[in-house]
Structure formats: structure tokens, C-alpha cells
Write a protein that binds this DNA or RNA. Structure first.
Lengths: 114, 114
DNA sequence: CTTGACCCTGACATGGATGTCAAGTTTTAG
DNA sequence: CTAAAACTTGACATCCATGTCAGGGTCAAG
């Protein structure tokens, strides 16, 4: 599939897909004329990238966590630690958000009653 | 309390506190020389601002939701709707984050086992 | 071959909260 | 009174994913 197809399939703009590649998060084959071609599996990979981005990881963190250029996973204690620390961060973020949600829900309730 | 005290009490930098005021989220009394003075209640207000910011509301949204210059709450259908829509957004955000957390937890598990 | 849709690279712009620096004023401690 | 610490305003810088524009190439259908 070409970049427009991948964009349509994932909702990521072509600009973003090129950026992901530039950051080493995504690879593409090139046609003779230089246009990018992606395998079907790219859809899932882009979804994963989107999830991690929206979870607050930046591209450097994602690159650490998902070695994608060299396909073989290099499992080091350091990587495990990195993953765990990101997991902790996301967990804390969820806790914070839940508290904030309670506050908002309280306001909604308060304004709804009278 | 002065701005340094409020900063220490909330963890927000003095820069941020001035910014909140500039955005109409926070008010301060001024001493003769022009320095800001805050009541104790400002600590809680700043905490609330921090929560809402970290939940992804920008200062305009917070200003909509927390009328603070005019202290009397203007309860309009519009405001109720606004609150509800922000609540929905935060709820969706939490759902997304939970899914991402699952993914990260899966990776941690995978890397931990072998 | 031509045309229109699609793609390429490179560069600059954006938003929004926050950092940081400069030059000057206020407050507080000694 | 004086020195240091804290504060003031204003301006410019930063991050970083994404938007957008320009100028040019590619590809498929007629």
C-alpha cells in the first residue's frame, strides 16, 4: 500500500507517517520512483505508535521501546526498566485523570441539579 | 502569601502562576509596591487548575468552566453542555490510556518472562 | 503522450504552557 | 542604612508533533 492508503487506514496524516519514518519508528520500501510502499502490518504498527504517542511517550521513548530498524528485540535489563518506568508513568497518569474526572463529574452534577 | 510561597505550596512555578493570572484563571491582591498576595484558598484553586490542565483542557476551556473573575457561577445550558463535553473527553482519554497501559503491560510481561 | 491524482523533499509555521534572561523595584534581615 | 532575597514586567526561547506551502517527480487511465 502507498502512503495515502496507510493514511486512510490509520487516520494518521501522510505528514505524520513521514515523520514517524524520519524518527525511526516506521520503515518503508521504496518503488523505483522513490515512493513509499508499506506492508499490511504497517497499519497495526502505526496504531501502536499512535497509542504510545497519545499516552505521552515521545518519539525517542517509542524508539527506545520498540526497536524497529533492527527487527530482533534486544532485551536488556535497561529496556525492561524503561518499559516498566513508562508503564508506571501511564498508570499514574490514569490515576490523576480519574481524580480529575471525578472533579468534572462533580461540577456537572452540581450544575445539573438546580 | 506571596508568589514564592504559593509556588512552593503547589509546585507551580512563579512563571506559571503569573500566566494563570494573565489568562484569567487566578486573581491576586497587590501590595503597595505591586507585589502579588494570595489568600490560602489560592492553593486549592491552583491545584484545580493544574488538574484540569493535565487533563488536557487549555486555559480558555478552564476559563469557560470556572468563571473566577465574576465569582457568581453563571449556570447556563451552554456551560452545562461544555462541562459535559469536557467530561466525555476526559473519559474517552482514560479509556484510551487504559488500552495503551494494557499494551505496555503486555510488553513488560513479554520481556520479563525470558 | 497527456492529464490528473498521488507522491517526493525541504522548509517554515503553529500552539500553548513553561523556561529564561534582563533591568529595575520592593521587601526583609542584619 | 544596606545588602540580599524576592518580586515586577516584557520579551524571547523551547519542545515536538503536525500543518502547510512550494516546486518538482511518479504513476495509472484514457
Amino acid at each position: 500500500m502507498r502512503i495515502g492508503d496507510l493514511s486512510a487506514a490509520t487516520g494518521a496524516s501522510a505528514r505524520s507517517l513521514r515523520y514517524y519514518e524520519e524518527q525511526g519508528l516506521l520503515v518503508s520500501a521504496r518503488s523505483g520512483g522513490g515512493q513509499r510502499h508499506y506492508p499490511e502490518t504497517a497499519v497495526e504498527r502505526v496504531s501502536l505508535i499512535q497509542s504510545l504517542l497519545s499516552a505521552g511517550l515521545n518519539s525517542a521513548a517509542i524508539q527506545d521501546v520498540l526497536p524497529c530498524i533492527s527487527n530482533e528485540a534486544i532485551r536488556t535489563p535497561w529496556l525492561a526498566e524503561r518499559l516498566t518506568s513508562e508503564l508506571d508513568r501511564v498508570t499514574r497518569q490514569i490515576d490523576d485523570l480519574n481524580r480529575t474526572r471525578e472533579i468534572l463529574a462533580g461540577l456537572v452534577e452540581e450544575y445539573r441539579v438546580d
